[in-house]
């Protein structure tokens, strides 16, 4: 699970059934200084996050468990919007 910034959304009309009706957002993974780390990726949204939101995501198999249907082609899901992040590095 990791931090990310929502920077856009992705529309894909032709896709596998499991992705029907899912909101796909473009996310930039962040490190503890909220600096970009790693490639931008597409994640399913489960908390109505919007552009600019600092969020946390879950990856791999557990991402699919964030959805109603759990055997779906999803390996990244936004599971929380961060209101406050206190960091002591």
């Amino acid at each position: 699970m990791y931090l990310g910034r929502v920077i856009g959304n992705v529309v894909a009309s032709q896709k596998m059934a499991g992705l029907e009706g899912q909101i796909l957002l473009l996310v930039q993974p962040l490190d503890e200084h909220q600096k970009p780390c790693g490639p931008k990726e597409v994640a399913v949204d489960t908390v109505k996050a919007g552009p600019g939101n600092l969020v946390y995501l879950v990856g791999s198999r557990e991402a699919a468990l964030a959805l109603q249907q759990t055997f779906v082609p999803v390996d990244a899901a936004i599971v929380g919007i961060v209101d406050d992040l206190e960091v002591q590095v």
Binding site: Y56, G80, I81, V82, D83
Partner: peptide, 23 residues
């Protein structure tokens, strides 16, 4: 443990759970 993550809007499974930032 280098940080705490606080947010009201989250997936139900995170209700009441403490979420920390780790290095």
């Amino acid at each position: 443990v280098i940080g705490t993550v606080v947010g009201a809007a989250h997936h139900p499974t995170y209700d009441g759970r403490k979420v920390l930032l780790l290095k």
